[in-house]
Computed example of a mutant assay.
Amino acid sequence: MRRRGLMAGGLALAGMAGAARAQDRFPDRPLRLVVGFAPGGPTDIVGRRFADRLGAVLGQPVVVENRSGASGSVAAIEVARARPDGYTLLLTTPSAHAIFPQIAVRPGYDALADFSPIGLVAIAPVVFAAHPSFPARSLPEMMDLVRARPGAFSFGSGGAGTITHFGMELFMRQAGGLRLEHVPYRGAGPAVQDCVAGHIPLVVDTFAPMIEHHRAGRLRILAVLAEQRSAVAPDVPTAAEHGVPGAVANTYNALLGPAGMAEAAVAALGRATRQATENDEFRAFLGAISAEPVSGMTPERTAAYIRSEYAKWTPIIQASGLRIE
């Protein structure tokens, strides 16, 4: 009897030791990185390059899987419901983690409670531009013109409820209640092209679809909604420089896992993410696509950033009255 008890205890200890060794070896098999947008889009492009770098750091392949739909929420739901073992991860954006959960009646997940924040991969500030024929040539002139003729001018965006749409709403609110008419498009590309063609006077998005038009004189970027000027276009002033405080809007790519992940797995992935994103080659890649690298974003700092972004957009979303059934 005593012998059987000792054997059982030995087996239990051996099992615990085996589990501990498995944790020490994390990861010991390939990981999945779920991206909530179609192949070839900006988030997918960043995700695939990041997956390559992360896999090199971890010593295991990181396989990108696209689950597009509903502003990235299809992917978010899948990862929220996944086993929290660290092998299923989400590359998310503010569309899925700050906007959609607040405009959808039934989003299917809690953006703050259902995930384990791991790290921030990149950010891209929101900017807005004017057609060369637009009478105002600078941000102060633009604000004076819109104040004098409220509602007379329109701006295009990649769609109602996008971070760029709400970024412009934030700017107008912080500028004292400017009024521009919103023209939503099905994606940033058509909105930018219509502005280049002169069909709309203003357009809002990130640097990526606009910077070459700006350099060629086909568009004039009036302001970047950031705390400081961007290395992508150092000639473009921030809104704050011209008396619009708090007009800061970024799209971001953040790495998350399901809620309930082991602290050791979160810590290991967080360290690997920082190592991958602080790599010179990866930073050069981000610069080439008009995105900006980040540094020192621990899981704790990433969690705080996502919470602050969620809270920042709440009053803007509520004021818009936009809801999705």
Rank of each mutant, 00 (worst) to 15 (best):
A259T: 02
G198C: 06
P190F: 06
T298W: 13
V224M: 09
G59H: 04
L11I: 13
R4Q: 14
V203C: 00
V34W: 00
G159W: 04
A70W: 08
Q228A: 14
E65W: 00
A262L: 15
G243E: 10
I99M: 10
R67T: 01
A267Y: 10
V127I: 12
A259Y: 06
I163G: 11
A38Q: 10
R106T: 05
Y310M: 04
R106N: 12
P293N: 14
P30K: 00
A130T: 09
Q275F: 06
M1E: 13
A276W: 13
R215P: 07
L31F: 05
G151T: 05
G72W: 12
A80M: 09
G47C: 01
T298V: 09
P117G: 09
G198R: 04
A265H: 15
T162P: 02
W313M: 14
R21E: 14
M16Y: 04
P42F: 05
H242D: 14
T162R: 04
E78V: 01
A160P: 01
H131K: 07
Y185R: 02
M143E: 10
G41L: 12
I77M: 15
S308Y: 08
R49C: 00
M1H: 11
G159H: 03
A20C: 08
L58P: 13
R301P: 04
R218P: 03
L139H: 09
R147F: 11
V105S: 03
E78H: 02
G18V: 07
V248Q: 10
A22W: 07
W313L: 13
P201V: 00
N279C: 07
H97C: 01
G270D: 13
V236W: 10
